[in-house]
Structures are given as structure tokens and as C-alpha cells.
């Protein structure tokens, strides 16, 4: 995997493209192009008068992967997702799903499921009825409605009006609606808003499982810990422009551990004998890359070296995110 830093596009690495899993073309109404990225954004631009909300944005979401779509409030994430969903028209560029704009897909919700707005349900209608109306629109049966309600663990509240749902429950309903057509691509905008800690973990596992089935998942979120634990790749935008598109593993590789020990010289020699790269700063401080804190601590214990500090630093998604978007000003939730 090569990583290129382009002045105008930030950190960009090519995505891994997997072959789309086999699905009945009759059910989809079209035949997916083998080897094509499930979601492809190419030179996407959206202008409102003189204001460019999204500028020349390009990235892919391959089948079988989870891509985190990050950016501060107003960076252009929702505008991008709306264009992908065909809810707003791009000024220029294309946003396609399996090689086709969403609006041109014969049975769109069977190809791509969007969870964009947890408030987009009539408050006086029950969750089940809202899903049934959507199911009849896309031509799926009531059995599938019950199935997705069970999948998102919302069966017990299915007959309650959506207006009486908590935000977390509405998020689950939104996910159920997105999954109604059993789509190959899942696009979610801030799906963890309002979820409790168990809900966060459940969603992480759920999305990883969907990617494991060969589906493409595009996840926009402000909760960087969730993103870091879920995604294979991150796409970061700032002021509508792409500033990073790279595998999450490359961020983990840049992690370092700060070690403070009175035996800095001896310990540096021990560490350098292995896979670690050691830099010596202050007299008793080492900055170690290539090894996690745990093996460093174990190595110190094995050689009876006293440690005064063992702190993982840098290399986090949060650090990268702030570094890439710091020029955008304050306002991160």
C-alpha cells in the first residue's frame, strides 16, 4: 500500500477494491459491474451561489469495507451524502452506487440503504407503520419489516408512535428503514447520536458484520472513537475539500509511546534490539514507535527496569482529525 501526500488533496491512498458479492440481478433490476467500487464519488462539487459546500470531492467505498466520513460541522458531509442519495443535485461531478447514480437505479433501496435523518418520520405514526409504508413503496413484504425491527431490537416499541421514541430509538428505526431493502451499500449519517454505550458497541459490531457479508458501509460520524474502532478507511473533508483518504491502519502505525525511566540508555538499547524505533529526547525520556505500551512494559519488567511513565501518544484518529481540520476554526461537537 502506497501513501501519497498531494498538496491539493491531502493524504490519499488508493482503496482496496473487492469484487461485489453475487446477487440475483433480477432482484436488483440491474447487474452490478464486477470490480467496480460500490460507492464512487468523482469530482463532486456543490455550490450555493458563491458558497462552495463541496469542492471537487473524490473517494471510493469498496464492497466489504467500512469507510468513515469525517469532517467538522458544516464541512460538507451531509451535502455529499444528500447528493449521493439523489436528494440534491451536484453542481458538477458524479456520485454513483455500483456505477449508477442513485436516481437511475431501478430498485434503489434494494441496492443502497440511506439513514440520513432520524427526524424524518411522521411523529403520530408508529415505527411499524412508517416502515410498512416504505416497504410498500419499494416492493418488500411485511415479513421484512418484522425482520428489520427485530434486527435493530425495536420490536417491543414497534407499535408506539415515533413521536414518543427516544433519539436512540429513532436512530434504530432509521437504521431499520435503511436496511429494509437488504441493500448492498449502507450509508449512515451520524448514526450514533443518542445511542447509549451498549448501542454504540452494538452498532459497531453490526456494521462490521455487514461489511463482513461483503456490503459497503459509509459512515459519517463525529464520535471518533467509534469511527476508529469500526472503519477500515477514513475520508476526511474540510471546507468541502478532501484532506485525507487513507486506511485506518496507517494511523495506528504512526502511534508512539512515551517512556520515562532513569535507565533510559539501557532501555533504549534493549528496545532498539527488537522491532521498535527509539528516539531519545530529554535525559530520561524515550519516544518509541513500532511497539505498543504493553510489550514495552513487559520488556521493562523482564529486565527489572523501573518506569516512571508509559504513555501512548500520537497516532490517534483524533490527533489526525484535529491536525487536518484545525484551520477550519472551532465548532466540533
Amino acid at each position: 500500500m502506497t501513501i501519497a501526500i498531494q498538496p491539493d488533496r491531502g493524504v490519499v491512498t488508493p482503496p482496496v477494491t473487492r469484487r461485489l458479492p453475487q446477487r440475483n440481478p433480477v432482484a436488483l433490476g440491474y447487474e452490478p459491474a464486477a470490480g467496480a467500487p460500490m460507492i464512487a464519488i468523482r469530482g463532486l462539487t456543490k455550490r450555493y451561489g458563491n458558497v462552495a459546500a463541496v469542492q471537487d470531492l473524490s473517494f471510493d467505498v469498496p464492497a466489504g469495507s467500512v469507510v468513515g466520513f469525517l469532517g467538522r460541522n458544516g464541512a460538507g458531509k451531509s451535502t455529499t451524502l444528500n447528493m449521493l442519495a439523489g436528494l440534491s443535485a451536484p453542481t458538477s461531478g458524479t456520485a454513483t452506487i455500483a456505477g449508477v447514480p442513485y436516481r437511475s437505479l431501478p430498485r434503489p433501496m434494494r441496492v443502497a440503504g440511506f439513514g440520513l435523518n432520524a427526524e424524518a418520520f411522521h411523529p403520530s405514526i408508529s415505527g411499524q407503520r412508517a416502515l410498512r409504508a416504505l416497504a410498500s413503496r419499494i416492493g418488500v413484504g411485511r415479513g421484512r419489516v418484522r425482520q428489520v425491527l427485530r434486527l435493530v431490537e425495536l420490536e417491543s416499541a414497534a407499535d408506539r408512535p415515533v413521536g414518543k421514541y427516544s433519539l436512540g430509538m429513532r436512530q434504530r428505526l432509521l437504521l431499520a428503514a435503511a436496511l429494509l431493502g437488504d441493500p448492498q451499500a449502507i450509508v449512515l449519517d451520524e448514526p450514533t447520536n443518542g445511542l447509549d454505550p451498549q448501542g454504540h458497541r452494538w452498532l459497531r459490531d453490526f456494521l462490521r458484520a455487514r461489511a463482513g457479508e461483503g456490503r459497503a458501509v459509509l459512515l459519517s460520524s463525529h464520535v471518533l472513537a467509534d469511527v476508529a474502532a469500526t472503519v477500515d478507511r477514513i475520508v476526511v473533508i474540510s471546507r468541502g475539500r478532501l484532506v485525507a483518504d487513507q486506511p485506518i491502519s496507517t494511523i495506528r502505525q504512526t502511534a508512539s509511546v512515551r517512556v520515562r525511566t532513569p535507565d533510559a540508555g539501557k532501555f533504549a538499547a534493549l528496545l532498539s534490539g527488537g522491532a521498535a524505533n527509539v528516539q531519545r529526547g530529554e535525559a530520561d525520556v524515550l519516544t518509541v514507535t513500532g511497539l505498543d505500551a504493553k510489550p514495552i512494559g513487559e520488556l521493562a519488567a523482564a529486565h527489572q527496569i523501573v518506569l516512571h511513565e508509559l504513555t501512548p501518544t500520537g497516532g490517534s484518529l483524533q490527533d489526525l482529525f484535529f491536525e487536518l481540520t484545525e484551520s477550519e476554526g472551532a465548532g466540533l461537537r
Binding site: G86, N117, E119, R137
Partner: peptide, 19 residues
Amino acid sequence: GSEYQHRTIEWTLLGTPRR
């Protein structure tokens, strides 16, 4: 009007994108 009031127009257009 309630389609826009409650933003259910999003589901309408996601399910039937040919406007």
C-alpha cells in the same frame, strides 16, 4: 405540506427517486 414539515419527503424520494 406535511411531507416537508416532517421531512418524510426524504423517504419518498429515496424510495421513488424518479421525481
